[in-house]
Computed example of a mutant assay.
Amino acid sequence: MAADPLYGWDLTFKTVERDIRRKSDVLIAFIHWNLSKRGFRTIGIGDELTLTGDEEKSEVLPTGWNDKDNYTLRYVLEGKLYILHGLNTDGTLIVNLMRSDDLAVSNMAVKIEDAVKETSGSINKLMPTHTELMHNVKRDLIDTITEKPTSSAETQTLGRSDSNSRRPPDDPLRVPPRPHPSGPHPDTRDLWELPPANLPNIGRSDLDPFAPGGGGMLFNPFGPRRDPENPGLGIPGGLPRGAVPPGARFDPFGPPMGPPIPGRRPPPDADHLPPPGGFNDNMFM
């Protein structure tokens, strides 16, 4: 037959039933019973963090455990001191369990009126939801501060650390591998190499101090790549083909064009202002 999960509660409650003054007292007695089931022994009240070694351990709540509005009880488990604090605030009992040697803390909060319906009677009458409360006390208050990692968990952690150790460490100063262009017909095998001779070398002299002269960011209209058959309009060397849509009004800019090319009509330029002085403006008659 399975063990009764409520074994020992009736005896614990009978020892403190005459001391019960409010519903939060029932909660503290219930938490104390859960602690006692798991090996905790009370050694009195207060928040003293040292042990003398001659404290008397007991399964019974000490005298004066509920004399104040808040609760402070001292427990011992496996030679370590634990302090149980219970704080009444706005209808909620906030409970925390602190281990004194490293100040580790577990905590939980319980709505008093929802958890405790009566201050006397059987457990079902006192706390109809005692099964859920027992689970929360074990999970949030006791196991959080007393459980040790299992061997399987340690093995999994060790395995993860071993797999991580096999990976080379990330070095922020390590030079990344040179990127290679993608696509079926890359222009060059390595982006760090100079482009082939059939590509214009525009912009190289602005970036490479050892580059030969010319080839800056601005296209040189007087360079060997100039198209004398299509000078275009505007600055010497002209604009590229298609820069001015057909039929669009365009005001040329820059210095005047050079001498006209034999056999070609010069571009129209009749919308500029006449020069000052005695200029014959019969063209407007």
Rank of each mutant, 00 (worst) to 15 (best):
E17D: 11
E118R: 15
N107V: 08
N282M: 08
E113G: 12
K111W: 02
K37W: 01
G216W: 07
R18Q: 14
F284S: 02
G254L: 05
F210K: 15
M1P: 09
D10A: 10
P228V: 10
G278M: 10
G223Y: 02
I202G: 13
S120T: 11
H130E: 05
A104K: 15
F13W: 04
W192R: 13
P172V: 00
V105S: 03
T157K: 13
P200Q: 13
I235M: 11
G86H: 03
E118I: 05
T155F: 02
L6Q: 09
S165Q: 09
G234N: 05
H185M: 10
H85I: 07
P169I: 01
R249M: 06
P236A: 03
N107G: 13
R241P: 02
K23F: 00
D19I: 02
N198A: 10
L35P: 07
K57Q: 15
P168E: 00
G216T: 14
I261R: 15
P209V: 13
K148C: 05
P184A: 06
E118Y: 11
F219I: 15
W65Y: 04
S161I: 02
L103H: 09
F30N: 09
N96G: 05
R189G: 12
P176G: 00
W192C: 09
G214H: 04
P209Y: 09
L51G: 01
L84D: 00
N201T: 11
S151I: 14
G278C: 08
L218Y: 12
K148I: 08
N280A: 07
G121Y: 05
V116F: 03
M127D: 05
M285A: 12
R178K: 14
T188F: 06
M283F: 11
T52K: 15
L87T: 14
V26C: 04
G215M: 07
N201P: 10
R38Q: 06
G39L: 01
T131E: 07
L61F: 03
F40Q: 05
I31L: 07
E132M: 11
L218K: 14
D227Q: 07
V26Q: 01
D69I: 11
K125V: 13
G159N: 14
L11Q: 13
F279E: 11
E48W: 04
D10K: 10
S182K: 12
P186R: 03
P236V: 02
V175Q: 02
M217P: 07
N88M: 14
F13K: 06
P168G: 00
H272C: 07
D90V: 08
G53W: 01
A3H: 11
P275D: 12
A109S: 15
R139H: 10
A153G: 05
P212V: 10
S58T: 05
P252S: 13
P181M: 10
G214M: 04
N230H: 10
